[in-house]
Design a protein around this nucleic acid. Structure first.
Lengths: 144, 144
DNA sequence: CAGAAATAGTTGCACTTGTAACTAAATCTA
DNA sequence: TAGATTTAGTTACAAGTGCAACTATTTCTG
């Protein structure tokens, strides 16, 4: 019987393979040069955009679950890249912010991240990048 | 300092989030209904297309490393879904093939996989799906 | 306002995954 | 052709990840 399904043309497979290839490149750089994994990097990126976030808001912003956020935050606090302040509105929660060291690290990484993005996606035109972004958002929404 | 890098618009992030959302849906189905993880599923899919492959060829065809292939193959052999024959051309290697049970399982899963793909990607037009496939292949090539 | 239910975040434990070292066989080289 | 090098695949151990259970606090309900 001939297969109806060709792995090579199966979109979930193509998506996974492309994502893994990109992640491998990026996480390699972050880990080697800065000792960060992707979860830690995402937290730093969000806190650089808007500091003083609760873990729950970071879950939302990074699309990671609360365990991943909790562990990444603990590692960053341990390295004094992030500090904890208590949340006067809710004693179960707290606020996380970048320290000066954390911001300095971000200022080092961010340009490198943009360069890497340009390396990987610069082969697409501006319109193609916009289209890819749009298609990925729609697929993501359909998967939830 | 205002951020130059907005995580929300960072393509490696968008790609990873979309891929994770799709993989979560798919792997949930395979595991619950058939007890397969994604690596095992990929091996079955390739062996259904063209049986009698060596592990090295399966690495190439599935884009997985040799450890992942070795472990997935061991699990499938254990469940009698795959058999091993020796390779007369190279004593270090061997051939893997689907058993009748393996093919029967494939025949059950394949239609379901196509249905799931249609659920997730059916929100895109045919042209958009083709464009997504093309863009993903180009990005993947750039990342290697 | 007391007790029940829900929520925020963390931790323990089992399972998965990745890196490095290993075995066995083939190939290269002098 | 003996010895060194490379290659195919597996295994052992460490690190990462996810689920379930847990603590502490808040919110709901009668």
């Amino acid at each position: 019987m001939a297969s109806l399904l060709i792995l090579e043309r199966f979109l979930p497979y193509r998506l996974s393979v492309a994502s893994n290839a990109v992640s491998a490149r990026i996480s390699g750089t972050y880990r080697k040069r800065f000792g960060l994994n992707i979860a830690e990097w995402r937290l730093i990126a969000i806190l650089a955009e808007s500091s003083r976030q609760t873990p729950a808001l970071l879950c939302e912003a990074t699309q990671m679950d609360k365990i991943a956020v909790s562990r990444a935050a603990a590692a960053l606090v341990e390295r004094s890249l992030v500090t904890i302040d208590n949340n006067p509105f809710d004693g179960r929660s707290h606020f996380l912010s970048l320290t000066n060291d954390g911001r300095a690290l971000y200022n080092e990484i961010a340009p490198l991240a943009l360069t890497t993005e340009a390396d990987l996606f610069g082969i697409l035109t501006r319109e193609e990048r916009a289209k890819l972004d749009e298609l990925l958002r729609r697929v993501e929404a359909a998967a939830k």
